[in-house]
Amino acid sequence: MSSWATLKIDEKIEAIREAHAKCSGTARTISEKLFELHGYQVSRNAVIGYYARQAEKLKDMPLCGPRAGENKKPLVRESRTHRPKAVATVNAYAEVIEFVPPPVAMPQSRNLTLMELGHRECRYPVDGEKERTLFCGNATGDDSPYCTYHHKLCHGHGTHSERNIDALLRRVA
């Protein structure tokens, strides 16, 4: 009898197919059947990992959830829906608050070295490595090391609560 680790891919797939046909189709029951039928000590996580790596070859025998006898739904992640970039939300007082990030045009980089940068010039690296790094060099705001474009690029538009702070302050005041 050989061990699970020494089996070839096709032999493992055949063993999983045989075990899947004789059990409920969960990773736990497949691993138990592999031990009963062939003596392979395979963990539940190893079965899940093998299904993940060999998904194309095992797609006709999907893994099922823990209550496979009740409803035999395959454990497949549904595709995520992407929200639009500008999302309208409604707060507790039914005011519609809409956040639309302001468009900021990408500036033309001045390609300055660190020694050439002056006070209030953008320190965003745009090219090079180590001592040959070149920086944007455009004008910055009062309290930022980056120009407006690179500041937005680095910091994003904030969390939902950060974007709605003005409405919250109006409500409290």
Rank of each mutant, 00 (worst) to 15 (best):
L114R: 13
T113L: 00
T140S: 03
L58T: 05
T29V: 10
L112N: 01
P125N: 08
K152N: 08
G25W: 11
P62K: 04
H150N: 03
I30D: 10
K33A: 14
L112A: 02
A86W: 02
H150L: 05
A21E: 08
V90L: 06
L63Q: 05
K130I: 14
P125S: 09
V90E: 03
G25F: 10
R44T: 14
V87Y: 06
F135S: 01
N111H: 14
L34S: 04
A27Y: 05
R77T: 03
G39H: 01
V126H: 07
K85T: 08
G65N: 04
P101K: 03
Y93F: 14
I48A: 09
P145W: 04
P125T: 07
Y51F: 09
R120Y: 10
A19E: 02
A52Y: 06
D60A: 15
K33H: 11
E95C: 03
T89I: 13
K22E: 13
N45M: 15
R28E: 14
R132L: 04
A94C: 11
C23P: 11
H119S: 15
S24Y: 06
L37K: 09
N111W: 12
K130C: 14
G49I: 05
E131I: 07
V76P: 01
P62I: 03
P107K: 00
R110L: 15
K33I: 04
A46F: 10
H82L: 15
R80C: 07
P101D: 04
V104P: 00
S144F: 03
E95W: 07
R80K: 09
L58N: 06
L134E: 02
A27R: 02
G137Q: 03
P84H: 14
E129L: 14
L112H: 01
A27G: 04
F35H: 05
A68E: 14
V100F: 02
L63R: 05
K33R: 12
K85C: 01
R77G: 03
G141E: 02
P107L: 03
L117I: 05
P107M: 03
R77I: 08
A68V: 13
D60M: 13
Y51L: 01
M106F: 08
E121G: 00
Q41R: 13
A55G: 11
A139C: 09
A19I: 06
A139F: 08
G49Y: 08
T81V: 12
D127V: 08
Y124H: 13
C147W: 05
A21V: 06
E98W: 06
